[in-house]
Design a protein around this nucleic acid. Structure first.
Lengths: 213, 213
DNA sequence: TCGTCAATCTGACCATTGTCAAGATTCTGG
DNA sequence: CCAGAATCTTGACAATGGTCAGATTGACGA
C-alpha cells in the first residue's frame, strides 16, 4: 500500500503506471470493506497513494468511476457464465445449462462481492445510464432469458416464470451469502455447495415439465 | 410535512408529541427515497421540523436510530408472516404454510422497502448488534426453519436445503423487485403475482417429496 | 404561582467530501 | 534534446455531516 504503484500492473504508462486500473481496483477493495455508500473518491485516491484531484484525469467524477465498476462487473459476469456453459459436454440440455449458469452466477457474486453490490445499486445517477452499463446487463441476462425460453417450449408465460424463479433463487442466495445472513442463521457449507443445492432444487422443478398441476 | 407534529401520532408527550416515532418514520421515508447510505441524521430532523440536536434526546446516535428501524422491520415482518399463516384454513399442510410465508415475505419487502433495506444492511456498527435486532431476526426465520423441518421428514440436511432454497427465492425476488431490476428486464405483473409464481414453483419441488434422484 | 426537569433550540466545532484552478513534473514524439 | 501534452500535486472553496455544551421553553405537580 505504501508502494502504491507496485501492486500488480504492467506499469506501462506515465507516472503511476496505470492509475485508471489502480483506481478501479482500490474502489473495489473499499466497496468490499465498507459498502458502496461509504466510499469516497478521496479514500480511493488515498489508497492508491495519490492525491485528491488525480482521479479527475481518468474519470469525470465519482459517479462515472462507480458506473465503470458496475459495467466491468456485468462484463466479467457474462464471461464467467459463458465459460461455464462452454465447459459443459456437447449438447447439454437446457436444464443442465440453466443450472450451470446459476452456479456461475453465484460463484461470481461471491468471488466479487464489490462488483456485485455496485451492479445492483443505482446510486449512480440514473440519468447517466451509460450504454456500456445496459449492454453489460443485457449480455448477462440475455442468456438466462434465452435458456428459459428453450425450456418453456413455446409458452412465453412459462418462460417468464422459469426465468423469474431461477434468477430470484441465485440472486437471493448470492445476496444472503454476501450480506452474511446465512452464516448468522447457521447454514453450513461453502457457497459453491449451497449454490449446487439451490440450483439443483430449481432444476428439479423444470426437469419434470408437464407434471405440474 | 410543514405541520411536523400532526402526522398521525397520539401527541401524548411534550413539545413535539412523539418525536421518537416521528424520527423513525422520517428515517423510513428518506431511506426509501435515497437509500440507506444517503440519509443523514440532520436530514431526518429537518424533515420532522426539528433541529440537529433534537434526535439525540431519543437516540444515542445515528446508528442506534437505524438499528431501531431494522429491529422494527424484523418485528413487523414476523407479524405479517404470522398473520398470513393464521389466515390459512385449519390444518394446512407444511407446504401450503411455506408458500404462504413466502408470499407474506415478499409482500412485506415490497410494501416496506425502506425497512427491508436496513434489515439486511449492516452499516450499523456490528459491535452494537443489539439483542432486539437478533431476536427480531430469529422471530422471522425461526418459523421458516421450523416449517422446512416439518417438510424434511427428519433429515436435517434436507431441511437445510429446503429452507435455503425457499429463503433464497423470496429474498431474491424481493431484492430484484425493490431494486427495479425486474422492470428493467421486462418482467410483467404485480409483485404479488410474481411472488405467487415463484412460491408456486418452489412449492412444486417440495410437494413431490421422494421423487428426486 | 412557582420551581423542577425533560424536551427542544442555538450555535458551534471539527472532520470529511466533491470538485476545481493553477502550478509542478514527467513522458513522448519529433 | 526540446516542446507540447499528459499526468499528478498543492491548496482551496463551499457543502454537509455527526456531535456536543449551554441556553431556553413548556408541562406538571406542589
Amino acid at each position: 500500500m505504501t508502494s502504491a504503484a507496485g501492486a500488480g500492473g504492467e506499469r506501462r504508462g506515465y507516472h503511476h503506471g496505470d492509475l485508471r486500473r489502480a483506481l478501479l481496483d482500490a474502489a473495489l477493495e473499499l466497496i468490499r470493506e465498507k459498502d458502496v455508500g461509504g466510499v469516497s473518491l478521496r479514500a480511493i485516491a488515498r489508497r492508491v497513494g495519490v492525491t485528491n484531484a488525480a482521479p479527475y484525469h481518468h474519470f469525470p467524477n465519482k459517479s462515472a468511476l462507480l458506473r465503470e465498476v458496475a459495467a466491468e462487473g456485468f462484463r466479467k459476469m457474462a464471461e464467467v457464465m459463458e465459460a461455464e456453459i462452454a465447459s459443459l459436454p456437447e449438447g447439454a440440455t437446457p436444464i443442465v445449462r440453466l443450472e450451470a449458469m446459476g452456479r456461475a452466477y453465484v460463484r461470481f457474486a461471491v468471488a466479487h462481492p464489490a462488483h456485485y453490490r455496485v451492479m445492483f445499486r443505482e446510486d449512480l445517477d440514473p440519468d447517466e445510464e451509460s450504454a456500456e452499463l445496459t449492454s453489460g446487463r443485457d449480455a448477462c441476462f440475455g442468456k438466462l432469458l434465452a435458456t428459459a425460453g428453450e425450456l418453456a417450449e413455446g409458452s412465453p408465460e412459462r418462460a417468464q416464470s422459469i426465468a423469474l424463479t431461477a434468477w430470484s433463487c441465485v440472486h437471493g442466495l448470492s445476496s444472503l451469502w454476501n450480506d452474511g445472513a446465512l452464516g448468522r442463521k447457521g447454514f453450513e457449507g461453502s457457497s459453491e455447495e449451497l449454490a449446487r443445492v439451490v440450483t439443483g432444487m430449481v432444476g428439479e422443478i423444470f426437469g419434470n415439465e408437464g407434471e405440474h398441476s
